[in-house]
Design a protein around this nucleic acid. Structure first.
Length: 542
DNA sequence: CGCAAATTTAG
DNA sequence: TAAATTTGC
C-alpha cells in the first residue's frame, strides 16, 4: 500500500470516492484497549483510506462552569504522550481548537486543499459527559447526518446506552469487563496522512483559565500504568483501611481516578489486571507468602470499579441529574440560589477553606493545591455545604468539579445529590467535621500541613480550636478571629471563627430533612428513584 | 384551533 | 441546558 496520500485525488466521475476515517479522541486518551481507534484502523486499512486521529479543544466546553485549568493541564499531558506514541508507530495526532462541527467543516476544507478525499466516517467512544458535551454530540450527529458521514460511538466502560431497566445491569457490567483487551495498533504508517498541520498542545492561558494546580497528579498513559502497577504490587496492601484517611489515602488509594476520567487507562484493563493480581494473591496465600490483607483490599477495589460505572449509569439514564434533584419531592428543601448575604458568606468561606472547621478547611486547601482528596473527605465536604451551611447543591457541586482533577460528571452529580440528602433512597449522613478530624487525623498531621495557622495548636484542641481558652491561645501563639468576622476579610495568620455553629445547624438540618422525608410525596417518588437507579446487588426491595 | 407557557425529556 | 412535548387559555 502506498505511503503517500498525495496520489489520492477527489473522485473522477463514476469512480468510488475514497474518503478519510476520523478517530475522535475525547475522554479516551490512550492507545491500548481503545475500541474506536481499533475500529478506525480496521476501516482505514480495509478500505485503503486515510486515518486521521483528532483531538479538539472546544471553547464552549472549556468555558463551562465545571471545567478548570487543572483538567486542561491533565488533558494536554495525556495528549503529549498520545502524540508521541502515535508518532512512534508511524501515526500522528491532529489537534485543533474550535467547536467540533466547525472543526469537521474546516478539516474537510484542509483535506480538499491538500487534494485529499473528504471524511467518510467518524469513530469515538460513547460519552457520559455533562450537558454541554451532550448538546455538542447532538450537533455533531446533525452535522454528520447532513454531510453523509457515518458516526460510530463505541462502548468503553460499563455504562449502557438506552438502558431499559436496572435489572441485570450488574451482569452486563461483568460481561463487558471480561471482554478481551484490545491491542494498541502496531503500525499506522500505511494509513497516515502527512500533509495536514499537526496543530498544537494547548495551555490554560490560551483560554484565560489561570494556572493549573501546583501539586497536580500527572497525566498520560505510561503514568496510568505505573500508578496501577504500584497499587497492585505494593501500595494497595492496606487499601481497605487507608482509603478512609486523607493522610494514608494519598498513597494507599489507587490514584487511578484522573486516568479513568480522561481514559489514559480503560476501566476494563484496570479490572482485568486486578483480577490477575487476585489470582496471584490466592496462590501465594496458600503458601503463606503474602500479606493476608491483600485479599480484602483487592476485593474492595474491584467493588469500587463496579460502583464507578454504577454511578455514571445514573447520569446516562437521567441527564437532568446535573441540574435538578433526582427526587423532585425535595425541590424547595433549600433555597434555589445562593444570593442572600448570609448564604454568600457561607459559600465563600467554604470555597476558600475558611469555615473555621479545621478538617473542612484542610480538605479544601488540599484540593486547591493537589486536586485530590479521598472519597470520605469529599463526602464530608459535600455534606457540610449541604447540611451545616444549608446550601442547595448545584453551585457547590460545580465548584468541587473544578477542584477535582478526576472530575467525572456521571459520578459527581449523583454523589453530590446523595450527600445532600435529596435522593430519598439513601440514608442521611451528616458528618461532624470535629469527629472526622479526631478519627481520620488523630496526629493532626493533615490539618497542620494544610492549615499552617493552626500548626501550634495542641492536639486536644486541633479539631475545634475555637474551644481553646484565650489564655492558652496566647501561650501557643494561635490567632483566632472574633466571632462574626467575615472570614474572607482576614489576614493570612488569623484562623476564622466557625462560620456556623455545628450543633445548632446539625439539629436544624436534620429536623428539616426528616420532615420532608416523611412526606408521602417524597416516599412515593423515592420508590420510583429506586426502580430507576437503585443498586440491585444488595437488599432488593419489593 | 392556534399559540404561548409550562413541563418533560434526552446520550 | 436545549429541544421536544404537553397543557392551558
Amino acid at each position: 500500500m502506498a505511503c503517500s496520500w498525495s496520489g489520492i485525488s477527489p473522485a473522477a466521475p463514476g469512480e468510488t470516492i475514497r474518503m478519510s476515517v476520523v478517530v475522535w479522541f475525547k475522554r479516551d486518551l490512550r492507545l491500548h484497549d481503545h475500541a474506536a481507534l481499533a475500529a478506525g484502523c480496521r476501516e482505514a486499512q480495509r478500505e485503503g483510506v486515510a486515518l486521521l486521529c483528532l483531538y479538539v479543544y472546544e471553547p464552549s466546553i472549556i468555558h463551562a462552569p465545571d471545567f478548570d485549568a487543572c483538567h486542561l493541564v491533565f488533558i494536554s499531558q495525556c495528549l503529549h504522550e498520545l502524540r508521541r506514541n502515535l508518532n512512534a508507530i508511524g501515526g500522528r495526532l491532529l489537534m485543533r481548537v474550535g467547536e467540533m462541527p466547525d472543526v469537521l467543516e474546516h478539516l474537510g476544507r484542509e483535506l480538499s486543499a491538500a487534494g485529499l478525499a473528504p471524511i467518510r466516517s467518524l469513530h469515538s467512544h460513547e460519552e457520559t459527559g455533562n450537558d454541554r458535551t451532550f448538546q455538542r454530540d447532538r450537533r455533531v450527529a446533525r452535522w454528520c447526518a447532513a454531510h453523509g458521514v457515518r458516526w460510530s460511538e463505541h462502548v468503553q466502560n460499563g455504562v449502557v446506552r438506552r438502558l431499559a431497566s436496572r435489572d441485570g445491569w450488574a451482569a452486563m457490567w461483568d460481561e463487558r469487563m471480561s471482554a478481551p483487551i484490545i491491542d494498541a495498533p502496531a503500525d499506522l504508517a500505511a494509513v497516515t496522512v502527512r500533509v495536514l498541520d499537526d496543530g498544537e498542545l494547548q495551555t490554560p492561558e490560551a483560554f484565560n483559565l489561570g494556572p493549573g494546580k501546583p501539586k497536580a497528579q500527572p497525566g498520560g498513559e505510561a503514568a496510568a500504568h505505573r500508578v496501577l502497577d504500584s497499587f497492585l504490587e505494593t501500595r494497595g496492601v492496606n487499601y481497605q483501611r487507608d482509603m478512609s484517611s486523607p493522610v494514608e489515602g494519598w498513597n494507599g488509594c489507587s490514584r487511578l481516578s484522573p486516568h479513568l476520567a480522561y481514559g489514559s487507562i480503560s476501566i476494563k484493563v484496570a479490572h482485568q489486571r486486578t483480577t490477575e493480581r487476585q489470582r496471584e494473591v490466592e496462590h501465594l496465600a496458600l503458601r503463606g507468602e503474602i500479606d493476608p490483607r491483600w485479599k480484602a483490599s483487592l476485593k474492595s477495589f474491584q467493588a469500587r470499579l463496579h460502583w464507578h460505572c454504577h454511578f455514571m449509569q445514573k447520569l446516562e439514564s437521567e441527564p437532568r441529574i446535573e441540574f435538578g434533584n433526582v427526587n423532585r419531592a425535595y425541590d424547595g428543601l433549600r433555597p434555589e440560589s445562593i444570593d442572600d448575604p448570609e448564604s454568600v458568606r457561607r459559600f465563600e468561606a467554604w470555597k476558600s477553606g475558611r469555615t473555621g472547621y479545621p478538617m473542612i478547611d484542610a480538605c479544601m486547601r488540599c484540593l486547591h493545591a493537589t486536586g485530590w482528596i479521598n472519597f470520605r473527605m469529599r463526602a464530608m465536604l459535600a455534606s457540610f455545604t449541604s447540611y451545616q451551611l444549608w446550601l442547595h447543591w448545584p453551585e457547590p457541586a460545580a465548584y468541587l468539579a473544578r477542584q477535582f482533577i478526576d472530575y467525572e460528571p456521571g459520578i459527581h452529580y449523583p454523589q453530590f445529590q446523595m450527600q445532600s440528602g435529596v435522593t430519598g433512597i439513601n440514608t442521611i449522613r451528616i458528618y461532624s467535621p470535629a469527629k472526622q478530624a479526631r478519627d481520620q487525623d488523630p496526629t493532626g498531621a493533615f490539618i497542620r500541613r494544610w492549615v499552617p495557622q493552626l500548626a501550634t495548636v495542641p492536639d486536644d484542641y486541633l479539631a475545634e480550636p475555637h474551644l481553646m481558652p484565650p489564655l492558652l491561645r496566647q501561650m501557643h501563639g494561635v490567632r483566632l478571629a472574633e466571632p462574626g468576622t467575615d472570614p474572607c476579610e482576614l489576614e493570612g495568620e488569623v484562623y476564622p471563627w466557625p462560620v456556623v455553629d455545628h450543633q445548632a445547624a446539625y439539629r436544624e438540618a436534620k429536623e428539616q430533612v426528616f420532615a420532608w422525608r416523611s412526606r408521602a410525596s417524597a416516599k412515593r417518588e423515592a420508590v420510583q428513584v429506586f426502580l430507576k437507579h437503585g443498586s440491585r446487588r444488595h437488599n432488593r426491595r419489593g
